[in-house]
Amino acid sequence: MKVGRRRFWYNKPMIRRPKNLNLLTIRFPLNAVVSIQHRISGMFLFLLLPCMLWGLQASLAGEVQFQTTLGVTRHWSFKLFLVWAAWGFFHHFYAGVRHLVQDVRGTGGLHTARISSRLVLALVAVSVAVFAWSLW
């Protein structure tokens, strides 16, 4: 058995045999896409936590800071950023509710899961659109 060198990110020496794991060649069904986006948006929200806390702190610190915070949110680039953040929030929220319902009531098979995936994506699109519309 040919054994490759130890990699820093892997605790075992690798057996030098190729694996077919080129993600671009694998077709991902809708359920998988919604699932990985749930994870991505979750990581994104984690990174946004300090921004959220900072925003809350600044808006409560005093009249002047409150106006500054509001002023910042009126800039178009920040609005774009807010829309992006809203995507992260809404996707994580709706997909999370879907996961919760699935854990409590079962996924109800492939067909139901596909429908709920579509529903999640539609709700996210509508919510982000409403949010963006209310911003401008």
Binding site: P29, N31, A32, S35, R39, Q102, D103, T107, G109
Partner: peptide, 22 residues
Amino acid sequence: CHNIMNCVDVCPKKLNPQAAIA
């Protein structure tokens, strides 16, 4: 298992491993 459901999607015998895991 994070309920990705790829397993259910591909099973040639139309089984539902995700439901069993749940």
